Simulated scan of single mutants.
Amino acid sequence: MSHPSLRLAEITPDNVVTACGVKVREDQNRFVAPVERSLAEAYAACGTAWPRLVMDGDEAVGFVMANFQPEEREPDFRCGIWRLNIAEGGQGRGYGRFAVQAVCEEARRRGNDRVTVMWVPGEGGPEDFYLRLGFRPTGRVLGGETVGEMLLR
């Protein structure tokens, strides 16, 4: 499915309330932190966090936050997706795929050849989504979350 109107938007004072309005399905809350918490973490990690709204035209349909920290000692935290929240009404429309691809493009632009993501395992969780996109479990578990990686070619 092609979405020529999809883009990522930097979080600004003009759209921060809109970003906070992105809510996943209620049953998914145990798998991903709310956007408000992500933005607080982005503020605390302002030198490395990369929070963005996923926009379809003028409509906010999701939120993605990556982290780019090439000097980090822990390889799993050098370049990765920290959060992906697709609004309840927008799930299954390719918005999540677009967001992950956009993070991968930014990672390549910054010279990275690997992107990581961590997910909480469980029925109804995001594992199948990430596996379909090409992430593979590394065999590591950090804080109860499975670490997945995608090698960028």
Score class of each variant (00 low, 15 high):
His3Tyr: 02
Leu6Gly: 03
Arg7Asn: 12
Leu8Ala: 10
Glu10Asp: 13
Ile11Met: 07
Thr12Glu: 07
Thr12Ala: 01
Pro13His: 08
Pro13Ala: 08
Val16Leu: 09
Gly21Asn: 14
Asp27Gly: 02
Gln28Lys: 00
Asn29Trp: 06
Arg37Ser: 14
Ala44Lys: 09
Ala44Phe: 05
Thr48Arg: 08
Pro51Asp: 01
Val54Pro: 04
Met55Lys: 09
Met55Leu: 07
Met55Gln: 07
Asp56Gly: 07
Glu59Trp: 04
Val61His: 06
Gly62Arg: 04
Gly62Tyr: 04
Gly62Trp: 03
Ala66Leu: 07
Ala66Asn: 10
Glu72Leu: 09
Glu72Trp: 12
Pro75Leu: 10
Pro75Ser: 09
Asp76Trp: 15
Phe77Thr: 02
Cys79Arg: 03
Cys79Asp: 03
Cys79His: 07
Gly80Ile: 02
Gly80Trp: 12
Trp82Ala: 14
Arg83Ser: 13
Arg83Cys: 04
Gly96Met: 06
Phe98Lys: 09
Ala102Asp: 04
Ala102Phe: 00
Val103Phe: 05
Asn112Lys: 10
Asp113Tyr: 02
Val115Ile: 15
Val117Ser: 05
Glu123Val: 14
Gly124Trp: 00
Glu127Gly: 15
Asp128Leu: 11
Pro137Val: 01
Gly139Ile: 00
Leu142Tyr: 13
Leu142Lys: 15
Leu142Val: 14
Gly143Lys: 05
Thr146Lys: 08
Val147Met: 02
Met150Pro: 06
Leu151His: 14
